[in-house]
Amino acid sequence: MTDLPAAPEETPRQVRTRRPGPLRGLVTACHPVPGLAVTFVAVVLAVGAGLGPGQVVILGVAVFTGQLSIGWSNDWIDAARDRATGRTDKPVASGTVPERTVAAAAVTALAATIVSSFTLGPLPAAALLVGVAAAWAYNLRLKATVWSGATYLIAFAGLPVAPYVALPEHPWPPWWMPVVSALLGFAAHFANVLPDLRADTETGIRGLPHRLGPRTGVIVMAAALAAASVLLGVAPAGTSTLFAVTVPVAGIALAATTAVAAVRAPNSPVAFRLTIVIAVLDVTLLLTITT
C-alpha cells in the first residue's frame, strides 16, 4: 500500500488577545480621564485668574503631574486588593505593568509636582501640595474611613486658590470659588465610589459612601452637584438675572440626570463621567464670569 503524502502541518492561527502592553497599561493606571479633567479645570481657573502664559503652563504641569502621582499611587497601593476582587481592568492587578514600575512612576511624578509647584512660589505650592497630600492620604488609609470625603473637599477647595495666590499681590479668590470646587470634588467622590461599593466592602474599605449606603450616597452626590451649580449661579456679583436663573436650573437638571444614571446603572462609571462633565461645564461658566 502506497503511503499517502503527509499533510502539511497546519500553521496555528495567531490569535491576538489585544492585551494592553506595559506602556498602555501605565497610561491606564494613571486614571487619565479624571486626571486630564482636573488639569483642564486648573488651567481654566489660571486663565480666569489672570496668570501669564508661562505661569499657566507651569501650573498645568504641576497639577497634571500631581494627578499622575495620585492615579499611579492608587493602583500601586490597591494592587493586592484589586487582585482579590478580580479587577482585570486594573493593569497592575492583571500583571500588565509591574508594581515596581507603577511605584517608581508615582514617586517620580510626585517629585515633578513638588518642583513645578514651588516654581510658582510658596503660597501656590502650599495650595497645590496640600491637595496632593490629601489625595495620597486617601489612597494610603483615609479611603477606608469616615474621613474619605474630607480628602476630596480639601483637595478640590485648594484648586482655585493656587492660581490666585500665584499673582503678584497674592489675592484670595472669591469665597464661593473654593466652595463650588469642593462641592464638585465631594460629588465626584461619591460618583466614583458608588459602582465599587460591594467589592470595596468585601476587602474592608468602608469610606463615607459605604457607610451611608448606595441610596443615600446617590442623594448626597446629587445634592452636592446641585448646590455647586446653584452657588455658581447666584453667588458671583454682577451677573445677569438670566445667568442667575439658568445656571442653577440647568445644574439641578444635570444633577438629577446623574442621580438617575447612578440608580439605573449602579455598576457603571456613567455617573462619574457625568460628574466630570458637570464640573467642566461649571468651570467654563466660571471663566465667563471672571474674564
Rank of each mutant, 00 (worst) to 15 (best):
W176C: 06
P124W: 03
P163R: 00
A105T: 09
M1P: 13
A150D: 02
W76M: 10
V180W: 01
V41S: 09
I278T: 12
W147H: 12
D75Q: 10
P209K: 02
P5G: 04
L184M: 12
V165I: 06
S116P: 13
A271T: 15
F186C: 02
L153T: 12
G213N: 07
K90G: 05
A199V: 00
L153A: 13
W175H: 05
A279T: 15
S268N: 15
D75S: 04
K143D: 08
L231F: 09
P174I: 01
P178T: 03
T96E: 12
A80I: 00
K90A: 11
P163E: 00
M1H: 13
L281W: 09
H170T: 14
P53I: 00
A199Y: 04
P160E: 04
A166V: 02
F186S: 01
R16C: 05
R81M: 11
P122Q: 03
W147N: 02
A187D: 09
S148H: 03
V102M: 13
R215E: 14
L232D: 07
V41Q: 06
I154V: 15
A62E: 04
A237W: 00
A223M: 11
V220L: 09
P160V: 06
G158N: 07
T257S: 08
T291H: 08
L274T: 11
P163L: 00
L212Y: 10
D78F: 08
P32S: 12
F243H: 15
A105Q: 10
L142I: 11
L197C: 07
W76Y: 15
T108V: 14
A134G: 08
A79T: 10
P124C: 04
F272H: 14
A84R: 13
P124G: 05
L208A: 12
Q14W: 01
S240W: 07
